[in-house]
Design a protein around this nucleic acid. Structure first.
Lengths: 189, 189
DNA sequence: AGGGAGTATTCACCGAGTGAATAGTGGACT
DNA sequence: AGTCCACTATTCACTCGGTGAATACTCCCT
């Protein structure tokens, strides 16, 4: 999976759309609203905020210190709101290329390892994915799960399933594939 | 999605394992063996090669000029081979978090847009994915398709399918989800 | 001779991401 | 009272991934 396209700036714009915030609040809002997302470091928030400001998508609305360290509050600008709306309206282009470590690894294995090792690699991967699938299913059906959790778990489950399906069909084709890559002839009948 | 985990260095090690190469050859080998992968720029190859050399995974085996510009040939070191084998043997951890632009966008839409717009967003996305799915199916069954193409297409198809499944179930849950995010009570019976 | 295609590499630059450092405030504990 | 800790809030230095343009040399075609 892994899209190469980064969404962090737009996510921050989205969080700012729910009210002015400073960096720390933004990071907390992110952790609260998108706990299933890749962890976001504080440094990243401030860096992104600076770029957004440079590009006119957010502005500083105040520098207060209210019993604590100085803090800078940011607000969405008109341009920022427009950029957010554009992002939301545009469909995410389904990748024209496959950016997956899994596929890359198997393709490389085919180049440098023998058939049995490729098979072992695929089988090991399948086992790990199956285990993770079980974990996610438990997590999804836990009584404490919110809809947020369920939706995120469903997403992960669907893609894990996709990997497993692919691992299965690839395992059944790996001998032919190996031959093709090595330019060896098919075995006689 | 965007892979967070980068495989480029290991892929280069893998290509080098099939024989010593210089940067340009490496880039061509990549394009030939992994055409379905995200495009790799020349600059990236040389930069990565420098890091691999710094880390002792590859060495320079020669600087020749043979009717053409000077070129530097690299070879895998023992350490490099070991790193490659380690990478191939380790299973790719199925992501503990969901790194998907699609999921992030829908989650943000839920925060800042009304229910109808979220629905429209999901529906539009579904249409785009369906169209891409048709394209890939054609591509896979084209007479010119090699096993490389078929395997890569299968991977993409499986994940597109996963997205479509998720879009479907999410569409059916979006009203409840919207309510939960907005902390509104469920409608009476 | 001149121009274009192919070979081979370098450079300057940006965004993403990490970890540590800094700095102030309030509360808990001794 | 002093001290340590946790929390709030931001900055810094640095690495990696990735892009586009620039450079430079050779060969071939016209």
């Amino acid at each position: 999976m892994n899209s190469g396209l980064m969404s962090t700036p737009h996510v921050l714009l989205g969080l700012l759309a729910t009210g002015d915030k400073h960096g720390y609040e933004l990071k907390r809002a992110h952790d609260e609203r998108l706990p299933q997302a890749r962890p976001l470091a504080f440094g990243q928030v401030y860096a992104t905020l600076n770029r957004l400001q440079r590009d006119g998508l957010v502005t500083v609305t105040g520098q207060e210190r209210d019993g604590g360290p100085e803090r800078t509050t940011y607000a969405l600008t008109g341009e920022g709101r427009a950029a957010l709306d554009r992002w939301l309206n545009d469909v995410e282009p389904p990748y024209p290329y496959v950016a997956s470590t899994l596929l890359a690894k198997v393709a490389v294995a085919l180049l440098v390892a023998d058939l049995d090792r490729v098979r072992a690699c695929l089988a090991a991967q399948r086992q790990a994915h199956t285990a993770r699938l079980r974990e996610l299913t438990l997590l999804k059906h836990a009584p404490s799960a919110t809809l947020d959790d369920v939706v995120a778990a469903d997403f992960a489950i669907a893609h894990l399933d996709a990997d497993l399906t692919w691992l299965g069909t690839t395992l059944s084709r790996v001998a032919d594939w190996h031959r093709e890559v090595r330019h060896e002839p098919a075995p006689g009948p």
